[in-house]
């Protein structure tokens, strides 16, 4: 599973980093998120899916993730 954040959609709600702090980091300046990894470690796939499903802006892209 791969993960990234679409910077055009992210508005800095911070829920991804709250739910999956090992997968996402937030800008100190405006709180917008970016992925810390390209490939999600197998033991963090549930966290990635929860972050994906929690994003109010649907800004998280999962490849090889859950069915749409």
């Amino acid at each position: 599973m791969q993960v990234r954040v679409d910077p055009d959609k992210c508005q800095g709600h911070t829920l991804c980093a709250m739910r999956a702090p090992k997968l996402f980091e937030l800008s100190d300046i405006d709180g917008h998120a970016s992925a810390l990894v390209d490939d999600v470690p197998a033991d963090q796939e549930d966290d990635a899916v929860e972050a994906f499903q929690s994003c109010p802006e649907q800004a998280i892209v999962l490849v090889g993730g859950p069915p749409a």
């Binding site: 508005q11 829920l15 929860e50 499903q53 929690s54 994003c55 109010p56 802006e57």
Partner: peptide, 11 residues
């Protein structure tokens, strides 16, 4: 889970 609420607005 999956609580993508819009209480802080969207966009």
């Amino acid at each position: 889970k999956g609580n993508r609420h819009s209480s802080f607005g969207l966009g």
